[in-house]
């Protein structure tokens, strides 16, 4: 059984069953990553394109490796090397890529809703690799895979998302996914970086990090975009660290076996202290590996859709 949909635009659209299916499928995919020969022929003859309008290292590489391990051919189009810089419209670029025979397009774009826009234009599958401040579903799926791997499930877990919630597509996707799977989600950050009405998503909102971290089972630390300070959204990076940085002292408030996640890239010493990032509770490196497995699963489920036992055998 595959995912009965053309695109993956956000976790808002997915049911708990679909999320579970993706996470379950990622387990055997992770096994493939541990093999001597990592390539399976499942998606041979298929073409996956990454279309990135924003700089990215890990998401892009992760998708490309995932596609290659699954046997697909990949091509990548970055804004700096394409005709986008000559003023070509997004529609024209999308249509051009599609007629070259691409089956799936991974899009990263600074505009919220751009993945939906692309999905409306092309017949190819679209996977949202992060659109503006809207959603970043594969990041949330890999975060959830990591949580499930370490904690066995989601029910009753207290997950704290810490940082710039307002501008975070990672936060939105995580909230959708975690809430559907039965976790208790708390968000904490300065009020100027907290979007309006977020409590209506079913989360608890905190402005004091100490209150939020109490007995947390998982802390997902968001990257602070330093240019937010230039827009006046908080006084200084120094004060941000003082009020919201995840320090070893603050970590003591959380449950003893708390799991620490960060979507990367980290600003060490700003949103997270190096001792914490490199400490025993951090799973930040595992997240990266799991990201490849989750993306293999997703490509497989969207593009192939057969029983995944065929892949592992």
């Amino acid at each position: 059984m595959g995912l009965n949909r053309k695109d993956l635009l956000g976790l808002q659209d997915l049911s708990a069953e679909e999320i579970e299916l993706i996470l379950d499928t990622a387990v055997p995919m992770k096994d493939i990553l541990g093999r001597e020969i990592k390539k399976v022929p499942t998606l041979r003859g298929k073409v996956v394109a990454t279309l990135f309008y924003e700089p990215s290292t890990r998401t892009r590489t992760s998708f490309e490796l995932a596609a290659k391990y699954m046997g697909a051919d990949t091509m990548s189009l970055a804004v700096s090397t394409s005709s986008v810089q000559k003023g070509e419209s997004f529609r024209d670029t999308a249509e051009t890529i599609e007629v070259m025979g691409v089956d799936t397009i991974i899009l990263r774009h600074s505009a919220s809703g751009s993945a939906q826009y692309l999905a409306n234009i092309v017949k190819a599958s679209v996977i949202n690799g992060g659109d503006g401040t809207h959603e970043h579903p594969t990041q949330a799926l890999l975060d959830m895979f990591t949580i499930r791997e370490k904690r066995g499930g989601f029910k009753g877990l207290k997950v704290v998302i810490l940082g710039d919630i307002l501008h975070s597509r990672v936060a939105r996707s995580n909230i959708w996914g975690l809430a559907k799977m039965g976790a208790e989600v708390c968000v904490v950050g300065p009020p100027t970086l907290m979007p309006p009405d977020i409590e209506k998503m079913g989360v608890k909102v905190f402005y004091q990090v100490e209150e939020a971290l109490k007995d947390a089972d998982v802390i997902n630390v968001l990257r602070l975009q330093l240019e937010r300070q230039q827009k006046g959204l908080f006084p200084t990076v120094r004060e941000y660290h003082q009020l919201y940085g995840l320090t070893p002292e603050r970590l003591k408030l959380a449950s003893r076996d708390v799991l620490i996640l960060h979507p990367g890239p980290m600003n060490r010493g700003v949103e997270i202290d190096p001792e914490v990032a490199d400490g025993p509770q951090a799973s930040i490196v595992d997240q990266v590996a799991n990201g490849v497995a989750v993306r293999m699963a997703l490509l497989y489920l969207l593009m192939e859709g057969g029983a995944f036992s065929a892949v592992v055998s």
Partner: peptide
């Protein structure tokens, strides 16, 4: 408009 929908859609309000 700034509100619930702008928050969900990730569009500045």
């Amino acid at each position: 408009n700034e509100g619930y929908w702008s928050m969900l859609l990730g569009l500045q309000g």
